[in-house]
Computed example of a mutant assay.
Amino acid sequence: MSRVIHVFRQPERFVAGTVGEPGDRSFYLQAAEQARTVSVLLEKQQVSVLAERISALLAEVARRFGAEESTPAETADLDPLIVPLEEEFRVGTMGLGWDSDSRSIVVELLAVTEEEVDESVVLDDTEEGPDALRVFLSPVQARAFADRAELVVSAGRPPCPLCAEPLDAQGHVCVRLNGYRQRTTAGE
């Protein structure tokens, strides 16, 4: 079966979002253009890394080409994910680049596969390889995506101040405390 590449050249929306409660959330990226919507599932860490890399690429593009990096407040997309939410695939490999012709940041998300992904498949239209979602974003759209993605990631459980692992409502066994807990006794 040949590869399916979902291309969004002028997306009306490209956002990160979640389904579920903190500690049990599923993370999605969703692209929408006209009546077409594609949603892909990925890990929280992947969302965080993508937001960081987009921010770094925006800074580099602004430095080299003078492209706009700021985000007007009115471009912030705080709406929930579009439903029904149908996962197209789970993301394995992510690619990121700058297309100087369209002055766009290109995000490519490839499906998880059993085989190792050759980097030549990323941002390429070859017939062989994993399914992909390719989205072209203006610098303003890319900044809005990165800002929202950072909010989505940070909206989870707060980190432990000692080990940075997420704190659970049921309690937290911190590795930095080495299994010991401070004891309190009555009468002291």
Rank of each mutant, 00 (worst) to 15 (best):
R3N: 04
R3L: 09
I5L: 00
V7A: 01
V7Q: 13
R9N: 04
Q10G: 05
P11D: 08
R13F: 08
R13T: 01
R13V: 04
F14Y: 02
F14A: 03
V15T: 11
V15A: 03
A16G: 03
T18V: 14
V19G: 07
V19F: 13
G20H: 07
D24W: 12
R25L: 08
S26E: 13
S26H: 06
Y28G: 00
L29Q: 03
A31Y: 12
A31M: 04
E33S: 09
A35P: 05
A35T: 15
R36A: 06
V38I: 08
V40S: 01
L42A: 06
Q46W: 09
V47K: 00
S48L: 15
S48N: 11
V49F: 14
L50F: 10
A51M: 04
A51R: 12
A51Q: 01
E52M: 07
S55E: 15
S55P: 06
L57W: 10
A59G: 09
A59S: 15
R63F: 12
R64N: 07
F65G: 09
G66A: 09
A67V: 00
E68I: 04
E68P: 13
E68R: 02
E68F: 09
P72Y: 12
P72I: 09
P72W: 06
T75R: 14
T75S: 15
A76W: 05
D77G: 06
P80V: 03
P84K: 09
E86W: 03
E86C: 05
F89A: 00
F89S: 00
R90K: 08
V91W: 02
T93L: 13
G95Q: 03
G95S: 10
G97E: 07
D99K: 03
D99I: 03
S100W: 02
S100T: 08
D101R: 05
S104M: 07
I105H: 05
E108T: 08
L109G: 02
L109S: 01
L110A: 13
T113R: 06
E116T: 14
E116D: 12
D118N: 09
L123C: 08
E128C: 10
D131L: 02
D131R: 12
D131Y: 09
A132C: 00
L133C: 03
L133W: 08
S138M: 01
P139T: 10
P139N: 13
A142R: 00
A142C: 10
A142T: 06
R148P: 02
A149F: 02
E150F: 10
V152T: 09
V152A: 04
V153G: 12
S154N: 15
G156H: 08
G156F: 12
P159L: 10
P159S: 12
C160E: 05
P161D: 09
C163K: 14
C163D: 08
A164P: 01
A164H: 10
E165C: 11
E165Q: 15
P166Y: 03
L167R: 01
D168Y: 10
G171V: 13
V173D: 15
R176P: 01
L177P: 04
L177G: 07
Y180C: 07
R181W: 10
Q182S: 13
R183K: 14
T184G: 14
G187V: 02
E188V: 13
E188R: 08
E188G: 15
